[in-house]
Design a protein around this nucleic acid. Structure first.
Length: 758
RNA sequence: GGGCGGUUAGCUCAGUUGGUAGAGCAACCCGUUUACACCGGGUAGGUCGCAAGUUCGAGUCUUGCACCGCCCACCA
């Protein structure tokens, strides 16, 4: 459809005789928008729609994972973001919304491995690394194509010319650059530490990827020499040769730190050493415990403090090692009852208690986490670094740790979270923050840009370090020169690359014009469930690499639940598919249903009836158009209108609405803005103004008629503008059907029409 | 164990700085020759979780309690 073509005739288009049909409208309208180029702010400037030096308004799309298709939660996110982008574009800002997708390493690989196993009964290790990665890439590409289609269906005014992928060439370069800079600053290090090992996924995961599942279990009290110790995990106790108690515990005053005792244990006599440490809770159980540093974070810390030996008891597949002797090779579930039986026979089992505890499981695979001591890569959150920017919070030199910076970015109010109460959650998380384990034993993702070789075989080259065992290490953006290098086999946590998203999409590490123009971004809109995973990591990365915040405002939306408040899931069969809703009721109705009643930070309930209700609203607008066009004909000469008193009143009322709605959107109260518009359009404009217009237009005097006609077209045209961010398709279609304003032969596109004056 | 949020009409939720409660949906009654039945007109429905306090006045502020939900946590 060419601009203005529809509006050229005097009569009302025949299509208004039928109900509004989103299915045969929306794709066509989206194509018109896309072909206009106005999703791209550069084109807006080029074509004179936006001022060259206009204020920017930038958002990055939280990149959907290429693990499948978009769900209703994505639809809610897209609706909110598109509303804000369209609003700001119409207000004359350089509005930029960057699309992209996320490779989501572990999630995508797990999904593909699952599919392959279902169809072909093959495991990861039946493929070479290259073969499997190829299969995953194929899947990722298909997912990407589906997702991109869905983004368009929702009406998202994304600048497709700037589309990015977290694993494409430019983003990979950004990731390697970021890693290298952090490595050089000592903020990224490699070390042996107790980490969360997922035996099912065969990889380490970060603290944030753990989900605690409540479980009933047995708590055992065991005789350990002269002591009684408690444990939920007897299968880890074979190697326990340290017994720990609080230094101030008078019950055990006669044992001194470092004292050795010969005791009878599971598989015979052992020597144990007494350790005094304040980490022990005197009031819990007997106040004595043995430690298994290899398989417990807490025990590992104690072992580190006292420089104790550590020994692995359970292997990476969850089987007992030879230290367990007769139980070696057994899986934990199988071994536990047998070990308890043996303890009972030996008279070492004092008593058993039923109790409820929380088991750590891997978010993606459901595997039960087994802490293991492993050589992994970490981000040090407690090491000071020279802050690269001129951060206004700091007076003088600013040498924060990453933790301090993440805290300060919010505490200084440079970043504002909506709703505000999430500040507390964020600060609480930071207080408990440990170093971030970033290496994964996964094949799909950003390979760690570090290479190793033996120094014995080769001369030492520049930019490398060499350790005491003669292993030379090189970290670089590009692979090293020379022979014999082998790259670290691990890949990076997917959030490492997403952490760069606000600026890697704008061309960083290049000093690109986009980066200057649009960073820090204005808004980051995402679900509260990834506040730590993503929002915090973006702040971390942006602070260290750019010396700045990544965004000014964070808008957190809640979960979309079903009508009964349950999470939507395949197993419950209560999933509402946004595409299905769009087909049935249109994208505008779907958007409204996800915005009205959705307050920031709060979960919302959605039912199909709701969506249907808003389809009726689109149709109501459609019919209002028909009435207005039949009676109002053309735009009035706005400047020289002479209105009757009653029409003045209606006009003033509308101007108040315009003011309120504008303020609501500016303050991110979209649920209020949308509801007010809905209410005004239906119950004021249609029910009152149109209804009262009928007798006036029929029998009123000329002045009253003239005034009312002017009023109708004026309010209606502006109302359509106010509604456009919320229901873009039907409003654009209506706009294109209205006759051009006086003195012009086209209305142009509504999406770039100026917002009504406030 | 620590923290956060919620509790307002049958259901879903608003209520921005304290001024005698609102919307949508549902229900009930009436209405159909032109904007719209994907409609119009009307009716009914709430001791704002409980208790106390501040105030001339509290859904709105303070304190305590109850219930629901969520997040965090290395009590072995």
């Amino acid at each position: 459809m060419k601009d203005g073509q529809m509006g050229a005739s005097n009569g009302v288009d025949e299509k208004f005789l039928k109900p509004y049909n989103p299915a045969e409208t929306e794709d066509r309208i989206y194509r018109t928008w896309e072909e206009s180029g106005f999703f791209n702010p550069d084109i807006c400037i080029e074509k004179g729609v936006t001022e060259k030096d206009a204020e920017p308004f930038s958002i990055v799309l939280p990149p959907p994972n290429v693990t499948g298709t978009l769900h209703i939660g994505h639809a809610a996110m897209l609706a909110i973001e598109d509303i804000l982008v369209r609003f700001n574009r119409m207000r004359g800002k350089r509005a930029l919304w960057i699309p992209g997708t996320d490779h989501a390493s572990i999630a995508t690989q797990a999904k593909v491995e699952n599919d392959i196993y279902k169809k072909e009964k093959k495991h990861r290790n039946d493929f070479t690394r290259e073969e499997l990665v190829k299969r995953i890439e194929q899947f990722a590409k298909e997912s990407h194509d589906t997702i991109v289609k869905q983004l368009r269906k929702m009406g998202s005014s994304l600048d497709w010319s700037r589309e990015a992928f977290t694993l494409d060439e430019k983003r990979s370069h950004a990731v390697r650059t970021a890693f290298k800079r952090m490595y050089d600053a000592g903020l990224v290090y490699r070390g042996y530490r107790a980490v969360n090992w997922d035996p099912k996924g065969q990889t380490t995961i970060s603290d944030d990827e753990i989900v605690y599942v409540e479980e009933r279990g047995t708590f055992y009290y065991l005789k350990y020499g002269p002591f009684v110790i408690g444990t939920a995990r007897p299968e880890t106790k074979f190697g326990d040769k340290y017994v720990v108690m609080h230094p101030a515990d008078t019950r055990y005053a006669k044992y001194r730190d470092g004292q050795k005792l010969e005791i009878e244990w599971i598989n015979g006599k052992i020597t144990t050493t007494v350790i005094k440490d304040e980490a022990v809770d005197m009031n819990f159980g007997t106040g004595v415990m043995t430690i298994t540093p290899w398989h417990s974070m807490a025990d590992f810390e104690i072992a580190k403090r006292h420089k104790l030996d550590t020994e692995q008891i359970i292997d990476e597949h969850g089987r007992l090692l030879p230290v367990a002797q007769e139980f070696a090779q057994m899986k934990i579930a199988e071994a536990r009852p047998k070990i308890v039986e043996k303890l009972r026979e030996k008279g070492l089992l004092v008593k058993e208690e039923e109790y409820v505890h929380k088991v750590a499981t891997a978010e993606r695979t459901g595997g039960i986490i087994e802490p293991q001591i492993k050589l992994q890569w970490f981000v040090d959150v407690n090491k000071r670094f020279q802050f690269p920017g001129t951060w206004n919070y700091a007076t003088g030199a600013y040498l924060p740790t990453l933790r301090e910076w993440m805290h300060d970015a919010l505490a200084s109010k440079a970043i504002k979270i909506i709703p505000e109460y999430f500040d507390k959650t964020y600060f609480h998380w930071i207080e408990n923050l440990h170093d971030w384990c970033i290496s994964r034993q996964i094949w799909y993702g950003h390979r760690i840009p570090v290479w190793y070789r033996s120094t014995n075989a080769h001369g030492k080259s520049d930019g490398t370090t060499s350790d005491s065992r003669g292993v030379e290490t090189y970290c670089g953006v590009e692979s090293p020169e020379g022979d014999g290098w082998e790259q670290d086999p691990d890949t990076l946590d997917t959030w490492f690359s997403s952490g760069l998203w606000t600026f890697s999409t704008l061309g960083w590490p290049e000093e690109s014009p986009d980066l200057h123009a649009y960073h820090p971004t204005n808004l980051l809109e995402t679900g509260y469930d990834i506040l730590f995973f993503w929002v915090a990591r973006m702040i971390l990365m942006s602070g260290f690499l750019l010396g700045d915040i990544p965004f000014h405002t964070v808008y957190l939306h809640g979960l979309v639940r079903d009508a009964k408040g349950r999470k939507m899931s395949k197993s419950l069969g209560n999933i509402i598919d946004p595409l299905h809703m769009i087909e049935k009721y249109g994208a505008d109705a779907t958007r409204l249903s996800l915005v009205i009643g959705a307050t920031p930070g709060a979960d919302m309930r959605l039912s199909e009836e709701r969506v249907r209700g808003y389809k009726h609203f689109a149709n109501k607008l459609w019919n209002m158009t028909r009435f207005v066009l039949e009676h109002g004909a053309a735009d009035a000469d706005v400047a020289n209108r002479e209105l009757t008193d009653i029409d003045q009143k209606f006009l003033a009322e509308f101007e108040t609405l315009t003011k309120d709605v504008t303020a609501d959107i500016e303050n991110y109260r979209l649920y209020l803005a949308a509801e007010k518009l809905y209410h005004y359009a239906w119950h004021q404009f249609a029910d009152v103004i149109i209804e009262e217009s009928k007798p006036i237009l029929k029998t009123g005097d000329e002045k009253a008629k003239r005034s009312r006609k002017d009023l109708l077209i004026h309010i209606f045209a502006n109302l359509i503008k106010l509604l456009h961010p919320f229901t873009p398709f039907v409003t654009e279609e209506i706009w294109q059907s209205m006759p051009p304003p006086p003195g012009k032969n086209t209305r142009g596109l509504l999406m770039v029409s100026p917002w009504p004056k406030v």
